[in-house]
Amino acid sequence: MNNAEAPLLRVDNLEKRFEIGGRLLAAAKTVRAVDDVSFAINKGETLGLVGESGCGKTTVGRLVLRLIEPTAGEITFDGTDLKSLQPAEMRAMRRDLQIIFQDPLGALNPRMSVGELIIEPMVIHGIGTPAERYRRLGELLNLVGLARYHAGRFPHEFSGGQRQRICIARALALNPRFIVCDEAASALDVSIQAQILNLLQDLKAELDLTYLFISHDLGVIRHISDRVMVMYLGKVVEYGDKQQIFERPAHPYTIALLRSAPARHKGKTRYRAIAGDLPSPFDPPPGCPFHSRCPIAREICTSTPPPLSPVAGGTHQAACHFAGEMTL
């Protein structure tokens, strides 16, 4: 693969283990929050990362930015091994790598005005003169649909949607190339959520951005993503083209997620819950992690972990011994 074809971000065999407990007489327990995860994101693409709460998707987003350190694996951004960078080098790299958090109010310092919040990254990285930063502040506010007079106000004076626009402006302050959107619209009302998603898509096209978009909402993932990665208990269970995964899902867990999405029936909203309870991350089941909840599980599923393999007749991959056998 030559440089022209290389993905902007490549992640190989990423792992993150957390040690829990271990005080006094209690033995420490290990949680594999992320277990052997590999994927790539091309320039200008949006990869949607979806799964139930606790599946490890937020941890993946923070690992690729080195907000937390991986236990194992490789993270390569535009040909640079991020794990090999020293703190000063990684700090400089953060101009290209930004994140938008789920809770905009929690992400914004309540003691700082909007103008101070947006200019702060430029100050930290020594970008521009005060006049140039102020001019850039006006550009950023306009870009996200806010006005210059908003710069003097404080986060608590804004609605949830406006606060998320402020967070987006702050993330754009350093002209990044790659942004992790961690449940960036899930805390908002549906109508406001649509506005934020459309804004992110417009900014992606206008500024040539690349996204890792994390969400538990399949409707949002379908709307904004080019490709999709489905996670369960720290592992990737399905990965590939959005259309293939939504129209021809091959893994029983992906099918269960799609079936559990709200559907209207005779004027009422109905849900089809996924059978069984989510296993404890402290003691995941052997073999396929989904076998205890899977309607087509067989003996091999209880002992042998299935590899992520191409699906017959499709353009995506699934980690299932009987991929494609179950249909929507």
Score class of each variant (00 low, 15 high):
295 P>G: 09
250 A>L: 00
307 P>F: 06
308 L>V: 07
278 L>P: 10
216 H>K: 08
228 V>T: 03
233 L>V: 11
217 D>M: 10
217 D>H: 10
263 A>D: 14
291 H>E: 10
263 A>K: 15
233 L>H: 05
282 F>L: 15
274 I>Y: 02
248 R>G: 01
260 S>K: 07
294 C>Q: 05
267 G>I: 11
214 I>C: 03
260 S>P: 07
290 F>D: 02
292 S>H: 12
246 F>H: 04
285 P>L: 01
299 E>S: 14
285 P>N: 05
296 I>P: 00
308 L>T: 00
306 P>E: 10
232 Y>C: 02
302 T>G: 11
217 D>C: 13
235 K>Q: 15
250 A>F: 00
301 C>Q: 01
301 C>L: 00
259 R>S: 09
222 R>A: 07
240 G>R: 00
266 K>A: 14
230 V>M: 04
218 L>T: 04
276 G>K: 06
301 C>V: 03
223 H>Y: 13
277 D>V: 13
237 V>H: 01
288 C>K: 05
273 A>Q: 12
279 P>R: 01
213 F>N: 06
222 R>W: 12
268 K>I: 11
277 D>Y: 15
239 Y>M: 12
282 F>A: 09
285 P>A: 04
237 V>G: 01
264 R>I: 15
274 I>K: 03
258 L>T: 05
235 K>S: 13
306 P>N: 08
285 P>W: 07
291 H>A: 07
291 H>C: 07
275 A>G: 12
272 R>A: 15
271 Y>V: 15
288 C>N: 06
221 I>T: 05
245 I>G: 02
297 A>Y: 00
268 K>L: 14
257 L>Y: 03
241 D>E: 13
298 R>W: 03
243 Q>R: 14
287 G>D: 04
288 C>F: 10
213 F>M: 08
278 L>N: 10
291 H>P: 03
283 D>T: 10
273 A>D: 12
228 V>H: 00
293 R>S: 08
220 V>R: 01
258 L>W: 04
231 M>I: 09
223 H>G: 11
224 I>C: 07
279 P>S: 04
213 F>Y: 13
219 G>A: 13
260 S>L: 07
218 L>S: 09
268 K>D: 13
253 Y>P: 05
250 A>G: 04
264 R>E: 15
284 P>W: 07
254 T>D: 02
227 R>T: 09
283 D>R: 06
267 G>E: 11
298 R>V: 08
303 S>E: 12
265 H>M: 15
246 F>M: 07
263 A>T: 14
293 R>W: 04
227 R>F: 06
285 P>I: 04
298 R>P: 01
267 G>K: 12
241 D>M: 09
273 A>N: 11
278 L>Q: 05
264 R>L: 15
280 S>W: 10
217 D>R: 04
269 T>V: 15
241 D>R: 12
282 F>W: 11
276 G>T: 05
287 G>E: 05
215 S>P: 05
299 E>P: 04
303 S>I: 15
258 L>S: 08
253 Y>Q: 02
245 I>Y: 08
292 S>L: 12
232 Y>M: 02
289 P>A: 08
244 Q>F: 11
293 R>A: 10
296 I>F: 02
240 G>D: 04
249 P>T: 03
246 F>E: 03
286 P>W: 08
